[in-house]
């Protein structure tokens, strides 16, 4: 029991919270990316996928609450640790050079904050429809398979990214996110004590690799819209515009 108490009070515990919540978020990002890539498969696929998610019902809420918790803990632990770090060096150096650390590793707080703002923005944009209400409520889509009328996610995304400012803001946010992820993976595994040399050889490359995959994968959608690979779906009959 006393050791559990030690554990909860220690900075190493706070870091474990950060690492596990971060890995959960990365897991979510993988799923989210795979879903988003359905944009290239056309409106039927992505709108059907969105509907599928909606129909999960309570399970969707479980996932949402898990994500909110993970995100919350990730933010909490970063504040906790950042405050400690600031207190540990009250007087800055006149001259300080970094040695082998990457820029990404030294700017986790900055990239993390950028991501936090982006997430809020992203939710307001495509989940709550507050940023661009006109494109959000752009009408419905009739599923070709079932005839059901659903939210036209496809057109909403296309319309959103046709605005160059919106597209640019997403690109900047993605750059921060990939920077964050590139350090996050190896850092998380180091914090979780993965000492097996074969695994750590793999995990040290996993971060940059995932960062690249996320960057290319997520960027492909706004770029696809901008260069016209992804076009607005033609209007359907029987559906009120």
């Amino acid at each position: 029991m006393s050791s559990l108490l030690h554990f909860l009070r220690s900075t190493v515990f706070t870091k474990i919270v950060m690492a596990t919540s971060g890995l959960l978020i990365i897991g979510f990002l993988v799923g989210h990316l795979l879903g988003n890539l359905l944009m290239f498969a056309g409106p039927e696929k992505i709108n059907g996928y969105a509907l599928g998610l909606k129909n999960l019902g309570p399970l969707l809420w479980v996932v949402r609450i898990a994500m909110i918790t993970a995100f919350g803990l990730h933010v909490w632990s970063s504040i906790e640790l950042a405050l400690r770090n600031r207190a540990a060096r009250p007087i800055a150096y006149d001259t300080k050079k970094s040695l082998k650390s990457t820029l990404a590793s030294r700017t986790m707080l900055v990239s993390g904050m950028a991501i936090l703002f982006f997430v809020i923005y992203h939710l307001l944009h495509y989940t709550f429809g507050i940023i661009q209400p006109n494109t959000y409520y752009a009408g419905g889509y009739r599923m070709e398979s079932t005839g059901e009328i659903v939210h036209h996610v496809y057109n909403m995304v296309v319309a959103g990214f046709q605005n160059p400012f919106i597209a640019l803001s997403y690109m900047i946010a993605l750059a921060f996110m990939s920077s964050h992820v590139s350090h996050a993976m190896s850092s998380a595994f180091q914090t979780l004590g993965i000492t097996n040399p074969n695994i750590s050889k793999f995990t040290s490359k996993l971060g940059p690799a995932l960062a690249a995959i996320f960057l290319i994968g997520y960027l492909s959608i706004p770029i696809g819209v901008m260069i016209g690979v992804i076009k607005k779906a033609p209007p359907q009959e029987h559906v009120l515009e």
Binding site: T14, A88, R89, K100, S101, T102, S105, M108
Partner: peptide, 13 residues
């Protein structure tokens, strides 16, 4: 009152 490790590895260098 030391800070905590964010695995930047500058210490090793």
């Amino acid at each position: 009152g030391f800070g905590n490790c964010t695995n930047t590895n500058d210490c090793e260098a």
